[in-house]
């Protein structure tokens, strides 16, 4: 018996279909509950956790906030973020270099938070400028962080992650002069890979630049509520 001739059949299947379906379901749930979800991506050491701690502390008097934080190992970041008094849940990814939607779904279930009781949920991704770019987590806003100590050309080296993000935050601005950070070049590079991208320049240490950023978040929450409420 001869084996049949191979034939080419067309199939159109998104490879990350499962992740995208989970992310879509999460987004629907988050929006239904009126919670604005922000994810943070950056390289390791760019100040994500400090920036997030400051964000949680600043928002907490007026808003109900919570955070999920992803890391390969240790609960150190969750412990640091818990100082803000906000509910925090660590996601330990083991060897995985990024978060996936299913991990967010599981963490939200385990944390037993009532999403209706939240205004903002922050998701801190694993420190990595490559892998997180492919995975939708169901967030409304993706922020990419770039610290002044990393150099102005980071956006050109990692255009994919900058392109997948909605907003850029330049962190550790209190160190800008010391490391001779060329702010104009950084802004130019961000615009080159993501024209029209909104950029905030902040220092979590001195608080500089945080007001604009916090107002922006508040505005986005108002917009979300006005589009989801009947």
């Amino acid at each position: 018996m001869t084996s049949p001739e191979p034939r080419l059949v067309e199939v159109r299947k998104n490879i990350l279909k499962q992740n995208d379906l989970t992310a879509r379901a999460l987004r629907t749930r988050f929006r239904g509950a009126g919670v604005f979800v922000v994810s943070l991506v950056s390289s390791p050491g760019s100040g994500k956790t400090t920036f997030l701690e400051k964000t949680l502390t600043s928002l907490r008097p007026r808003y109900r906030v919570a955070a999920l934080v992803g890391d390969l190992a240790t609960e150190n970041d969750a412990t640091r973020l818990a100082r803000s008094q906000a509910p925090v849940k660590q996601i330990i990814t083991g060897t995985l270099c990024h978060l996936e939607a299913a991990m967010v779904e599981k963490a939200v279930a385990e944390a037993e938070w009532n999403l209706n009781d939240l205004d903002f949920l922050f998701i801190e991704n694993v420190g990595n400028l490559v892998c997180p770019s492919s995975y939708d987590l169901g967030e409304d806003l993706r922020m990419v962080l770039l610290s002044v100590t990393e150099g102005e050309d980071k956006p050109l080296k990692y255009p994919t992650i900058f392109n997948s993000a909605d907003v850029a935050v330049i962190t550790k601005n209190d160190l800008a002069a010391a490391v001779e950070f060329d702010s104009k070049a950084a802004l130019r590079n961000i615009q080159a890979v993501r024209p029209g991208m909104k950029v905030f320049q902040v220092s979590a240490k001195t608080g500089a630049g945080l007001d604009d950023y916090l107002q922006f978040l508040a505005q986005r929450l108002t917009e979300l509520r006005s589009t989801t409420s009947v």
Partner: peptide, 17 residues
């Protein structure tokens, strides 16, 4: 920044028997 292509990650065809 109006991206039309470049983010694809999909299976488009299979050679089967």
């Amino acid at each position: 920044g109006d991206l039309r292509h470049g983010k694809e990650l999909e299976v488009v065809a299979l050679e089967i028997q």
